[in-house]
């Protein structure tokens, strides 16, 4: 859970995102000596780095090491000591049918949330970009959802899907769908995905909109003269030029769906009947803090860390290759 905030905090803007990734790739080959800052003392740069390094160390490396360590032990629930059990925590987890079904749900949930929040965010951004009159109002209305904290969003979502007063349940009932969020596994999953997507759309909207406005007007005009179909122009010119933004958002949204939806899930499934969908990160929390199985919970969080690690490498390796940076 700890590494999610630190990842999103490093990339506040799309331009710095592009720059961030680009610097990654071309820093050794670009000798820009003119811009290099000279320090009088060799210790000074390390001093400047220290606060950030301290934060990363205290909130990421240290807990990670602890998690790895405790994943090999069986902790006494009352804190009276621990027993070394080797890989037992891992094998238990991976053999558990419940864990595997949660993993499957997490994969589906992450894929759907990422896809829909990116797609809807992009659609709204493209439409907002085309508007000339009143676009400030339109943008503000779309953006302010982002200011809502995840648990509040979860709560609002819960109200929308409430059995008795939820307007969305009534709409569903109109179409003959007896929606029972909190009781029915699929209905809860549906509500969870809808609320998570809704919460993330404004974020994607802002980035896509600023990405769109970064595309030079003459390039769009040239495309206008070269290509009649608006849809085809979008696929062949606009979208490729948005790729750096889209790639950045893909990583951020994957992380969001995996970790930051915790608050939404918590509000939706807490105090509800047992058979509700949860994601891996929520399972880590349940086993560790509700079930007091710190060893098993640690093993799960290490597995989760490895999954995210592999996923991120995959994204950089195979998707970023197709991204064109200006």
């Amino acid at each position: 859970m700890t590494h999610a905030p630190s990842l999103s905090a490093t990339n506040p803007t799309p331009t710095s995102a592009g720059g961030f990734f680009r610097r990654f790739r071309s820093a050794p080959s670009e000798p820009d000596a003119a811009k290099r800052v000279q320090f009088n003392s060799p210790l000074l740069p390390y001093l400047f780095l220290a606060p950030q390094m301290a934060i990363i160390f205290i909130f990421f490396y240290w807990p990670s090491v602890q998690a790895i360590q405790s994943s090999f032990y069986l902790e006494d629930p009352f804190g009276f000591g621990s027993t070394f059990v080797g890989m037992a925590n891992y094998t238990d987890v991976l053999k558990s049918g419940e864990y595997l079904s949660i993993a499957r749900f997490t994969a589906v949930f992450t894929a759907l949330v990422t896809f829909f929040s990116l797609a809807i965010g992009l659609l709204l951004a493209v439409k907002a970009d085309g508007i000339i009159r009143g676009n400030a109002t339109y943008k503000t209305l779309l953006i302010w959802v982002y200011a809502i904290a995840p648990p509040v969003a979860g709560l609002m979502g819960m109200m929308m899907f409430d059995q008795h007063i939820g307007p969305l349940v009534k709409v569903a009932a109109f179409f003959g769908w007896n929606m029972q969020v909190g009781l029915n596994y699929n209905d809860t999953a549906f509500a969870m995905i809808v609320v998570s997507v809704w919460k993330q759309i404004p974020y994607n909207f802002i980035f896509f909109l600023s990405g769109l406005q970064g595309i030079p007007v003459p390039v769009r005009e040239a495309a206008l003269m070269d290509c009649r179909s608006g849809l085809r122009r979008f696929w062949t010119v606009i979208l490729p030029l948005l790729a750096p933004t889209a790639f950045f958002l893909l990583i951020i949204n994957t992380t969001y769906a995996l970790f930051d939806t915790f608050g939404v899930i918590d509000v939706m499934v807490k105090d509800k009947a047992a058979n509700n969908p949860i994601t891996l990160v929520y399972k880590v929390y349940m086993d560790g803090f509700r079930g007091n199985d710190l060893g098993g919970s640690s093993a799960q969080s290490v597995i989760l860390m490895i999954i995210v690690f592999v996923l991120t490498i995959f994204q950089f390796r195979f998707i970023e290759r197709r991204v064109h940076y200006n």
């Binding site: 030079p216 003459p218 390039v219 005009e221 040239a222 206008l224 003269m225 070269d226 010119v237 064109h324």
Partner: peptide, 16 residues
């Protein structure tokens, strides 16, 4: 696109 014309822009406007 259907006016049967082609334009050369000041800042080239090539597809990057």
């Amino acid at each position: 696109a259907e006016r049967d014309i082609a334009m050369v822009f000041q800042n080239y406007a090539l597809y990057p």
